[in-house]
Amino acid sequence: MTAKRKFNIGDRVSVVDKTTLFHHRTQKFTRGQSGVVTEYRPEWVIPEDEAFDPAGNGRKEPFYIVRFKQDDLWPDYTGHHIDTLETEFSESWLEPATSKGKR
């Protein structure tokens, strides 16, 4: 059964900046940053659970690809202003965008 997705393609989202212990796959340079959902990824066991359970009984969530502006991610970015970076998140790492980006 597939849960209803909280976000749609084109939505502006922010990455939650929460305390983490042990295994996770949310790059620290994305914490608190805002970007746009560009792609749905299949629902799967979240890495925080999957990393400790060979049986695959962890919590499942929909995943998303989010596109960020490189200018937002790196304060000293020297590339083109239109450059972007895309990476993947499980749904609980995202919330409706709070601002244009933390910097």
Partner: peptide, 14 residues
């Protein structure tokens, strides 16, 4: 054979 999965492998690498 159910001993691990690729996320456990990544965790073990870390």
């Amino acid at each position: 054979r159910g001993a691990w999965n690729s996320e456990m492998r990544r965790r073990r690498e870390n």
